[in-house]
Design a binder for these strands. Structure first.
Lengths: 148, 148
DNA sequence: TCTTGACCCTCCCATGATTGGAAGGTTTAC
DNA sequence: GTAAACCTTCCAATCATGGGAGGGTCAAGA
């Protein structure tokens, strides 16, 4: 199977498959004489595993750990669970941060007439010297939240 | 005021101040003879405005719009409100995505004994050929959610 | 057999916001 | 006068992903 077929069978783009190979998340494949990468159904299975883990928001680093646990028949399930729960906590923290932002903003927007006049509590609040009301005390690292 | 003082007064790092200048979010400042940037209290006020908007998760592009509306005494408040509400919707979508991920993961973790034995429903689910249960149907773009 | 289009290859670049560092000049306080 | 604490510019890295250029390969049809 060529990379394109492996890509559509796994849901991981050809670009990403090459990238995963380059960073060592997946091993280097066999190549044809002319240099084309060749994939087996087993490889596709692994790629699908990776894609599912990505869909759950795991980082590539965590996925590497999960894949190696997956391959390890002697693994302890607590090791897997620890990674999963750790990630749950990260997700929950992000969720809380976003909720605080959304709540604060909604509150501000509620108080803005939203008409053609210039008066606007949203801008006033942003321009204020006082601490932002309730909710907001952001971990600024979170920044603009990935790309839209 | 030097850039370091402006940074600590505004909460925006010197690095970021230079960056904001380089991308045109803030205008180029006056310089001393020796090339040091000089900031006024007014500049610091603007930087603080920017920082607050960042804390609420606005992108630099949106902040540019907000700053120009802020400066515009003839602005219509509906323009500001539109940006804010648009952002609220983006936030809410992200929140929903993360909640789906967290819920799915928690569900899987709940069914994992987390002991020293290898059996693990989390890995089984990731390795499964079937669609992920409930919750998950991710906008993969969201990926690893910024940096930990 | 030749051509064409659909593949594949490897590089490099860009994203967004931010931090880090190197190499070098300036200011300040002792 | 010197050392520390600033400042300057430029370059690189982060993380996962996509885009594209420039070039080779393969399969199907004329």
């Amino acid at each position: 199977m060529n990379i394109g077929q492996a890509a559509s069978a796994s849901g991981v783009s050809a670009k990403m498959i090459r990238y995963y190979e380059s960073i060592g998340l997946i091993p280097k494949t066999v190549r044809t004489e002319s240099g084309y990468r060749v994939y087996s159904h087993h490889d596709v299975h692994t790629l699908r595993f990776i894609r599912r883990a990505r869909d759950l928001g795991f980082s590539v680093e965590q996925i590497a750990d999960l894949v190696s646990l997956w391959r390890d028949r002697e693994r302890a399930s607590k090791d897997v669970k620890a990674i999963a729960l750790d990630h749950v906590h990260v997700l929950e923290r992000k969720i809380r941060e976003l909720q605080e932002m959304a709540l604060t903003l909604k509150h501000l927007a509620d108080h803005c007439h939203g008409d053609s006049r210039p008066h606007c509590p949203i801008l006033e609040e942003l321009a204020s010297e006082d601490p932002l009301p309730v909710h907001v005390k952001t971990d600024a690292k979170f920044g603009a939240l990935g790309k839209a």
